[in-house]
Amino acid sequence: MGDMPIIDEAKCQRCGLCVSICVCGALVMEDNAVKVIQVENCGWCTMCELVCPNGAISCPFEIVVETTRD
């Protein structure tokens, strides 16, 4: 399975904004904490990172050089 956005629980203020905007259902508020669930259709839109007021979510990119060329 693919990577998922990462939540820094120490920074998260549980405001729920990320949960409210995510279209894929990967982010859920459970027991007053935001959890990330593995879902197929998180397209790495990075909107959760963008809306978080506390910099608590990160959607990092891996940078690689294409190896096969045709």
Binding site: T46, E49, S58, P60, F61, E62, I63, V64, T67
Partner: peptide, 17 residues
């Protein structure tokens, strides 16, 4: 400058960073 070489720990960066 942050390209992974395919092996080991690959650097990962967010747009924020």
């Amino acid at each position: 400058e942050h390209t992974g070489n395919g092996g080991g720990e690959r650097p990962r960066l967010t747009q924020q960073e």
